[in-house]
């Protein structure tokens, strides 16, 4: 008995060591890229050309950031990006919660149709509908407006289903008292369900925030004027290169990396702030039997 226990602990120790080593290596591959981007963003122009993985700049310099802010007047695009991301995310949360709530209500005529309407779009390849979507946007007079960027993906199948699953986990008993009070569906939704769904909201909120903040193709397609540029177009315009005709444009790597750092910071902040809700939201939202 004693020896068996002993053996098990040694086995356990080895297992635990192997396990932690495995996880550490994995984690390293995930941290190194961030450190590398950060380090290169603080190098001098010439050092940033060196084609090696750096974890520290040899000579500390903020010239990359200076160039980034001087050469791309980044304040405008940053503001536009914030407007599009924040308002888009908020509206997205509201509309998807509403739709998700409707789907958990008991049967009503047309529910099947609603389910089809909501699930099928997820399977349509975006490359296929680029041209028709552009035509629709133009018909609405939304080409070259920030509204077009807010409108695109204002609801999504994923978010609606996630909210629906989340709402399903909320005990029905909670709403009964409200219904007895004579509250209608909207009130049940706004007063009972929504406040309880904070984790679910945080989850779709984070996903939306990340994808809206990083959106690129819609902005390329719908935006024409410089004063409506969003962050990713502005950053991409820094690095102009064409292989077939001669090009003289170049920007040092430190400025490009500085661009990546600037664009990642808000994402990290939002992730850290909402992390607590996010994880429990994912859990209840996604897991469903």
């Amino acid at each position: 008995m004693y020896s068996r226990l002993y053996r098990r602990t040694t086995g356990k120790r080895i297992f635990s060591a192997v396990n932690i080593t495995f996880l550490m290596i994995l984690a390293m591959t995930m941290i190194i890229p961030f450190l590398n981007v950060l380090a290169v963003s603080f190098t001098t122009n010439l050092e940033s050309y060196e084609n090696t993985i750096k974890l520290f700049p040899r000579e500390f310099s903020i010239i990359g950031y200076i160039n980034l802010f001087r050469r791309v007047a980044i304040a405008g695009p940053l503001l536009n990006n914030t407007i599009v991301t924040v308002s888009g995310t908020l509206i997205h949360i509201l509309l998807c919660s509403m739709a998700g709530f409707v789907l958990v209500r008991s049967r009503f005529p047309g529910k099947t149709l609603a389910v089809v309407l909501i699930t099928v779009p997820m399977m349509i390849p975006f490359q296929m509908i680029i041209i028709p979507v552009f035509v629709t946007m133009r018909r609405f007079g939304l080409i070259d407006t920030l509204s077009s960027l807010i409108l695109i993906d204002i609801v999504s199948t994923f978010s609606i289903l996630l909210m629906k699953n989340y709402f399903e986990s909320i005990p029905r008993s909670l709403e009964e008292s409200a219904v007895i009070d004579g509250a209608n569906e909207w009130i049940v939704f706004a007063k009972v369900y929504l406040p309880l769904a904070k984790p679910g909201i945080a989850t779709i909120g984070i996903f939306q925030f990340v994808s809206r903040w990083n959106h690129f193709l819609p902005a390329v397609l719908f935006i024409n004027s410089t004063d409506k540029y969003t962050l990713q177009i502005a950053l991409k315009s820094l690095v102009v290169s064409s292989e077939l005709t001669s090009t003289t444009q170049s920007v040092a790597n430190n400025a490009r990396m500085a661009g990546i750092v600037v664009s990642i910071i808000p994402l990290l902040l939002v992730y850290i702030l909402a992390q607590k809700y996010f994880i429990s939201g994912i859990m209840v939202g996604a897991v469903k039997e």
Partner: peptide, 19 residues
């Protein structure tokens, strides 16, 4: 409550799909 979602998908998914 489901109208905005349905309207969006019809306009920006199903019409383009048909196109």
């Amino acid at each position: 409550m489901i109208l905005p979602a349905a309207a969006y998908f019809i306009t920006f998914s199903f019409f383009p799909l048909a196109d």
